[in-house]
Design a protein around this nucleic acid. Structure first.
Lengths: 194, 194
DNA sequence: ATTATGGTGGACCGAACGGTCAAGAACTTG
DNA sequence: CAAGTTCTTGACCGTTCGGTCCACCATAAT
């Protein structure tokens, strides 16, 4: 070892993620990243590689974190149906509407890059498949707990829930009032979680 | 009048729209636009102004066209409920999956620019509000025709339908298999249109 | 204290960007 | 045919882009 790093890796990655999250990949310049991280070009490149590599890194971290958060949310719900409803309506919970306008980093990434970048496409596809799997377990539990009809395939129901949530996430990005967004989310939850 | 234009305006605008649609705003260079239109810089600028103006122009045209197509779809449905279902499942109809991967130009635009461009944001917000209004009429008709419960507010139900469709559009962009996408769309339609 | 090693910061690079402009071509009008 | 007008073409401009590189610095090992 020689000179130690003068920055905290997790802090830097979080700042990078937030910048990419709010302004997207193409519209984020290296100077933007240097500004929000406080690092010089040399440090950033030596530590994380080029812009695209850095992007994929923070995006992958984000996906892992959301999977963990979702698992925790569902596990912490005594009744699975409540966890599913919380998942579905989560994008409409911030009263300020700021979270809704910002959307989901993975969704934004998919929208911007999936059609042009095979790595982002497969990452996105795998992430949503995994999310469906996580939710499918909760759906099965909700069925066992008598809160959800056993007529439908858990996997299928989970995919419908994921899909509906992405719709809510997107409508938040259009600037729809949070109160209306929440109302829509509750309506959809009533129709889907029954 | 003097020298007449050597290009067809509608053809050029369609080519520009398709380019922006598939590669987004930032990732589309002027050279890309010149290539797909066959025009020189001077012609393009003289006819349509700068890149952003051109983008807003084709996006506005697109929104108008989709509103017209939606009105036609609903009007052409003897029973409103069928039109609503067709609207909801439309993003999953292309067997090749190409349309699904491409998504919706307005959705892509909103995802990329709404957070940073107030004009795009209000255009998007207004467009989806208008779409909700169009669908609300069809919901009311479906209620009168006895195909939809009269218990729910048409406006509210319409917003739920719009939201669900955006979820389907997005899942298509993740590369989800078209057959699975269609299955999800049908599941959601069953749950929402009842 | 000296040396080795990795970190830092910024100058620097070629390429690509959006946008301007002038010269000439193609048409209409008289 | 001549004059006037619009459109077309592409050279050109300043800026910004992502990325490289190197001189310098701070630490650990000896």
């Amino acid at each position: 070892m020689a000179r130690p790093r003068q920055f905290d890796e997790a802090t830097v990655l979080a700042a990078v993620r937030d910048q990419f999250w709010t302004t997207g990949y193409a519209a984020t310049s290296l100077d933007d990243l240097l500004r929000v991280t406080g690092l010089g070009k040399g440090s950033l490149y030596a530590a994380f590689g080029d812009k695209r590599g850095l992007y994929l890194r923070v995006l992958g971290d984000y996906v892992d974190a959301t999977h963990g958060a979702l698992r925790a949310l569902l596990a912490d719900s005594p009744r699975a149906i409540d966890g599913l409803r919380r998942y579905l309506t989560a994008p409409a919970q911030d009263p300020s509407g700021a979270d809704a306008l910002r959307g989901c980093f993975l969704v934004n990434s998919t929208s911007e890059l999936a059609a042009a970048d095979a790595d982002v496409l497969s990452l996105s596809r795998n992430a949503f498949e995994e999310r469906g799997n996580i939710l499918a377990e909760a759906v099965a539990r909700a069925q066992r707990e008598g809160d959800l009809s056993t007529g439908t395939d858990p996997q299928q129901a989970a995919r419908a829930i994921v899909t509906a949530q992405q719709g809510i996430v997107f409508m938040g990005r259009t600037g729809l009032d949070v109160t209306e967004l929440r109302s829509v989310a509750e309506t959809l939850a009533d129709q889907i979680l029954s």
